[in-house]
Amino acid sequence: MKKGIKGMIGAVLGVVIVISISSSFVLADTMGNTTMQQSTTAASTAGSGNAATQQDPSNTTAELKFAGEKAAMSDKTFKLILMDANGQPITGAQVKITFDMVKNGMNDMSMHDPEVVTLAPGSQAGEYTGDINLYSHGAWSASIEYTSNGITQSTQVNFDVANSGPNWIIIGGFIGAVAVIIVAAAILKKKKSAKA
């Protein structure tokens, strides 16, 4: 009986240690990398969700893509796809984007300075990639400036950043660990009272 109780305490401790160690890895991961699982397009106007593109007066098209169903906080890597008026990819362009939160009036302004990101060519024609930390949810603007064949053009894409929401792995691990401890403790307590 004593062995069983010790075994159970050992098992509970084991679970907690495993969860703690996994949490540490998740912790390290959370602070290091953000993985992309699914691609979607940023909204062309603030608040309109997943709208795809922005066309500038010269009829070129800029499409901004983030991970997830909607651009979310902490997204790191993004893609920009540039197409000319004929729908052909614009290759070999020098591209930079200035990201900033959209201001709503005098008192509603970000404490951050706008962030300028220089993009590198992506894996496909017309594709460019860069990293940005979308630090807060709300309306954002991306001022895109690209130079191709000696001509510099600019356009702007507005998009919404969704709150990244809770990390369900962490919360699930936490709730699971607490539940295991409570259940084990309740069983032990019941056995103890039955014995008494």
Binding site: V16, S23, V26, L27, M31, I170, V178, I181
Partner: peptide, 18 residues
């Protein structure tokens, strides 16, 4: 890191419950 701080507090919570 807010997430890091949050996880630290959750880990302590688990240990306290135990």
């Amino acid at each position: 890191s807010p997430r890091g701080s949050g996880i630290l507090l959750l880990m302590i919570t688990v240990a306290v419950v135990l």
